[in-house]
Design a protein around this nucleic acid. Sequence first.
DNA 1: TCTTCATTTTGAACATGTTCAATAAGCGTG
DNA 2: CACGCTTATTGAACATGTTCAAAATGAAGA
Lengths: 225, 225
Amino acid sequence: MTAEASSTRKSEETRKRILAAALAVFRERGFHVATMREIAAAAGVAVGAAYYYFDSKDALVMAFYAQAQDEMAPQLDQILKESRTLEQRLRGIIGQKLAYFAPNRSLVSALTAHIDPEHPLSPFSAATAPIRDRDIAFFEHAVKESKLRLPNSIQPYLPRLLWLYQMGLMLFWVYDRSLRQERTEMLFDKTLKMMMQALKLAELPLLKPLFRPAGELLKAIYGEA
Amino acid sequence: MTAEASSTRKSEETRKRILAAALAVFRERGFHVATMREIAAAAGVAVGAAYYYFDSKDALVMAFYAQAQDEMAPQLDQILKESRTLEQRLRGIIGQKLAYFAPNRSLVSALTAHIDPEHPLSPFSAATAPIRDRDIAFFEHAVKESKLRLPNSIQPYLPRLLWLYQMGLMLFWVYDRSLRQERTEMLFDKTLKMMMQALKLAELPLLKPLFRPAGELLKAIYGEA
DNA sequence: TCTTCATTTTGAACATGTTCAATAAGCGTG
DNA sequence: CACGCTTATTGAACATGTTCAAAATGAAGA
């Protein structure tokens, strides 16, 4: 939001330096204990400068996420190219993200700290829509070309639902205290398989009374498109 | 946590006065903008006093929730007594809670602000276990005596799952901007019906491959009991 | 009543995210 | 170069949740 298109070379340098310093401090000391004064000092700059480039401490985390998106995009594209089934693709995409974020779990936890959709930094806010849409696009791609035959009333919402699934999984992962987060791994594996089972069963006429209201619900919540 | 059993009459008075003042200020100005200085002033007391009785600003909200639990308990018992089916009971219990909290939505949003299970005020923390368990007990009661025949691998976890469902619903409700929160009402109605459908179908052998892994998953996440 | 100790109350001090007026640095133009 | 204008940078000041040493209050016993 703060950085303009007319950013000169040097300005961009400073911005990068501040962000890098912030991430370093966050990693070393944890997001919450890290102070803006520390970060500024680490970047060799006054506190005000940090606020000139970033709206808030949280905004630094958002910048981190945006950067992560850029860096991960090619790898995710690659994964989509190399796999065919939806299950493989989801496993690949979500697994890749978890792996990427693994060294920065405390930072991700800061990201998920705001659920309030009014808060500019919430994953559900209008302000983060571009980032969110970019994320959802990968799930759109993953769903496309897959052989899955879903009821028309559900199909269009699947990418957004999968994104939500991913968010929930990451939330669990962020606070997963088990060794190497193996509980998340287990949750991921089992729920993914169950989801695939459920999607297959969606065709059965027997389950119509279960999936028809689901479609109506989705339409009401997400809107027509 | 702070209030001891040895609380004398006057001390208890002060505590109540501070809590009441806090709730009034929260209601009038919203949780976030309200300051501890305001609250203290409204209670006719120094800031320090507020902290003598409550660990933090958030703790005031927790005290509010505990009080709400006390006040709602008889009504919830009544609802359980007057209804038989699980659907009726859930509709009654959850509906009652939403109605009760309606005048204080901003306060409830403060309650759901901490997802981190390490945070003492998170609904998932060890510190809030007593409050949580008391809540879950109502769902246990609601499930008991209902004619539902569920696989043994799932049955024991049902109350906790229903509690989770309720939490999710309240989260949606807290940020529901629609008139009279009618979107939440719709979500509640539809998901409740779907849940009942799904639970009935759980008996079908056809759906075994879907429900068996679900049972295993629950065991792994929640533990044996 | 006086002493002693625990309980309660006070308000100044502290930490930290954030703002902002002032200053410096760049840069294009005459 | 000199002058203005935009962009960067500074650091003191502010707001607010929280802490804490000191003071006030109260209760119980000698």
